[in-house]
């Protein structure tokens, strides 16, 4: 890893306290594939940041570096630094498991645990914590709160004890969001969360994302530029593993600085 002095600082020199996550010269590989190349950028706190770019541009890999999920894949490798509220998450002695409770993640396809009820799914993240015996009251509090935050409560209120596989795909995805919210993370990572959903469910998830930034920072990877325009405050454009441009969403979609961004926005990359 490069010495701290030589690490470039991000252009957006916001006060540190307003930065939820900061990548410094971040590189990531799958075996010999260099998926993320020298990315340095800030994800501001209490904003929704969208990462867009063509397939294979490294946007999902970048996201997975932020909660150290990338390293769970065989032959994966990471270099550089990622600061989470000032702490280097790749420093020695950092427990990725503890990190992941602060940085929640939701995937492309709904992943409810099929052996658990809706209620147990919501509480799963809390129960995962070793040594903490969760009181029944604390669990009830979380089961009553997280589904509300995920705009799911009205649909599952009477069936919390039913299997989580019995609800619709859109509801399952919001259940996964509720499950991630249950641990009260500071940052929520969304990896194309609406890719497998119908338009109505998509709209519900988008409204939810818009609400969530009031209480946390959200980073969303999407292949859908309209979605990025609808839900995000800032947009990052990536191409072939490199970060090309980061700007307020309105600026990216109206007056992008980089010609490559413009080409992509106007549909020339497909």
């Amino acid at each position: 890893m490069a010495a701290a002095e030589t690490v470039p600082m991000p252009d957006t020199s916001a006060p540190d306290a307003m930065v939820a996550m900061r990548c410094l010269a971040l590189n990531a590989w799958f075996g010999t594939t260099h998926a993320v190349r020298d990315v340095t950028l800030d994800f501001p706190a209490h904003e929704v940041t969208a990462i867009i770019g063509p397939s294979g541009c490294g946007k999902s890999t970048l996201l997975r570096c932020l909660n150290r999920m990338h390293e769970t894949v065989p032959l994966a490798r990471v270099e550089g630094r990622v600061l989470f509220h000032g702490q280097d998450i790749y420093a020695d002695g950092v427990d990725p498991i503890a990190l992941r409770r602060h940085v929640g993640m939701v995937f492309q396809r709904p992943t409810p645990f099929p052996t658990m009820s809706i209620r147990d799914n919501v509480a799963a993240g809390l129960r995962a914590q070793p040594g903490v015996k969760l009181s029944a009251a604390a669990q009830d509090e979380v089961v009553g709160r997280a589904p509300r935050e995920a705009a799911l409560w009205d649909e599952v209120e009477g069936r919390l004890k039913e299997s989580a596989t019995g609800i619709s795909g859109g509801q399952q995805q919001r259940l996964c969001i509720a499950r991630a919210l249950a641990t009260s993370p500071h940052v929520l990572l969304l990896d194309e969360p609406t890719a497998a959903l119908d338009p109505i469910s998509t709209q519900k998830v988008e409204e939810l994302v818009y609400e969530l930034r009031k209480v946390m920072s959200v980073i969303i990877v999407t292949h859908n530029m309209q979605q990025a325009a609808r839900v995000s405050d800032r947009t990052v454009f990536m191409l072939m593993g490199e970060m090309i441009e980061m700007a307020p969403t309105r600026k990216i979609f109206t007056t992008p600085t980089d010609p490559r961004t413009e080409s992509y926005i106007t549909g020339r990359f497909g």
């Binding site: 995937f107 992943t111 499950r179």
Partner: peptide, 28 residues
């Protein structure tokens, strides 16, 4: 599905609990 394993890891499950409580239980 691999996605289920990743979901558990991303939720802060240690690997051994992911393996025993999520994966093994699902395949039981």
């Amino acid at each position: 599905p691999q996605a289920l394993r990743e979901a558990a890891l991303a939720l802060g499950y240690p690997r051994w609990r992911t393996s025993l409580q999520i994966v093994l239980r699902t395949a039981l």
